[in-house]
Design a protein around this nucleic acid. Structure first.
Lengths: 189, 189, 189, 189
DNA sequence: GATGAATGAGGTTTCATTCAT
DNA sequence: GATGAATGAAACCTCATTCAT
């Protein structure tokens, strides 16, 4: 736990960015929620913009690490691999919903630097690899992988946004249904 | 030409909100893009918050009007009705991509008032009705309609976000594939 | 009735200046109360500052005219002359309370020009003359006339301010008592 | 030296409010005179309106504290008590002329809240008590106490306004004369 | 290292004034 | 003549950032 304050700040910022976006979050808001002085934030991050980028990259890494462990074990068939990846995504959404929502807001985010955009695309490589394999063995449909990724990611995140506002209620059954839907969206028919 | 300035302001605001979100957009930015004085904005809208809500509701209405004309013609089968609705969504995305992205940002938007949230849910009734009909005649799967709506909307919008940043290239073929995917996500298997 | 609009504007401005002072009154407020367009005000007055000065001088003239008619008739004794002047002041306060309050706010009013200050002092000459006469014939005390004027004017206006906020209720008896008090303040004992 | 900046701001605001009234005084003006950044004012006062009310109440307290110490010592006769109160008012006017003028501007001041109006009336209780005592022992005339207070306060403040613009010159003799005049205005004849 | 008071640039909003109709 | 839409300077206020403690 190298540095406690730094973690507190990142955690506070993440919650706020997920709820109010970058520009709707002020540095004093972050400081208050992190229970540190406003000046302290600047001992750990050069600026608000540096903070948001480090946080973004940390979130990408967090998701990436979860997804990439033992993922593409060739012993499993594609559907099962999809199930595993979906379960990991779900766990991530459960444990780090703010991180998921924050990651999803990256499109067109003028405050993210090139590195942030790059690590995000790199993370998607995992999905792409899975899909490519599936196309090779005839399990996955013919649509471009990037479109499929957009479909599954967009659907998945939007389901969790809808849960968050209370319109959907989370349950194992719901998530199983969503997984099946997403699989149907990409599998070869 | 009714009220030119008001339209100019709304159009400028829409572009900026879609690109930079509410808090990342300043009133002078809107004024400059609309080619009006900053003060002029306040002749048409009481405040920035009133502006964003009127704009949001106008965008909902715009999409709503497109979707609801002749939609549920019972002569057509469900797949065809889905095709028609998807085509209208696509046209809307083509002609008013900013409106689509702005509409999508409404979750947890603290600056939207109750009416804005309500008109948005009302618009979704259309989708819900279609899905209910499909469940009755056995065409659509068993997943809750709200989840299906989240899946299709989330997928659709995310595809257009991906097109926007240049990762996907829009084509009739792509959109046909996305439509098929979305249909597969919700149809009964 | 030379110019109706001009009068409407002056009347509206007077009420507002009396209630909210110069800087608390906006030109649109004046326009609304006068039932004219904001631009119309500028056909009659070069600027808000010119307006306030013309209005001030008009109010001074209005009070001046009332006070100076037949005032210092040497047939009357000083007490009676004081009574007459007091009655005229009272009538002015009754009919033009806003004008009285506006006139009273002139001290330190940075927006009044030299002419405005001058016509006000000239109006006070009347009082001064009365007091000088009284000192000569032994009716009035020895205090400097300017101090006596300040005492009587300050007392008189403050009584009407107190009536206005509802702490005192106006009545013939009250005013007779105030007149007597003021006379006692300046007469020779 | 407790809180220097807060005092500096209040002092600067008082001078400006006395000279230019509430709406004629801008926050940057206060900041410049107080030699602080404009933003600093908002660390001490929520808004300009809160500032003016805190300042007003502080001025009332300041005058109240001076007046109420040992005031109604029953050993002294009424005239002497009046003398003492008048001397304290004079000292207040000498040392805190801005506070006196600012206090006097409270009538109809839409920016003052109920508490501000209340503490001001409470301060006047002192005067009222003195006058009631005088009426009981036959020293003071029959006019309503509120009217007498208006007369003396109005006269007193207007004399100091007149001194301030240079028309009267302050001297012990002048003030003795004004005191005598004010006493004559209220005493039983 | 940590703080939060202080700042001023820049945010939202108002308003005296202009000018096309 | 009269209007009120339009403007931009300047109002009130916020906030990213600095720095003395």
């Amino acid at each position: 736990m190298a540095n406690n304050k730094r973690e507190d700040i990142l955690k506070a910022a993440l919650t706020l960015f997920a709820e109010r976006k970058y520009d709707g979050t002020t540095v004093p808001m972050i400081a208050e929620r992190a229970q540190v002085g406003a000046g302290t934030i600047y001992r750990y991050f050069e600026s608000k913009e540096v903070l948001v980028n480090e946080l973004f990259q940390e979130c990408v890494k967090s998701l990436s690490d979860r997804l990439s462990s033992n993922l593409l074990n060739p012993e499993y068939d594609l559907r099962h691999q999809f199930h595993l990846i979906f379960r990991r995504l779900t766990q991530f959404a459960d444990e780090r919903i703010d991180a998921l929502l924050f990651l999803d807001s990256h499109h067109n985010a003028y405050y993210l630097n090139e590195q942030s955009h790059r690590v995000f695309s790199e993370m998607l490589e995992l999905f792409r690899q899975l899909l490519e394999n599936g196309k090779n063995d005839g399990t996955i449909g013919a649509l471009q992988s990037d479109a499929m990724i957009a479909i599954v990611w967009g659907a998945f995140v939007h389901v969790f946004k809808t849960i968050r506002v209370g319109v959907l209620e989370q349950s194992a059954e719901l998530l199983a249904g969503v997984e099946e839907s997403c699989w149907n969206a990409i599998k070869r028919h």
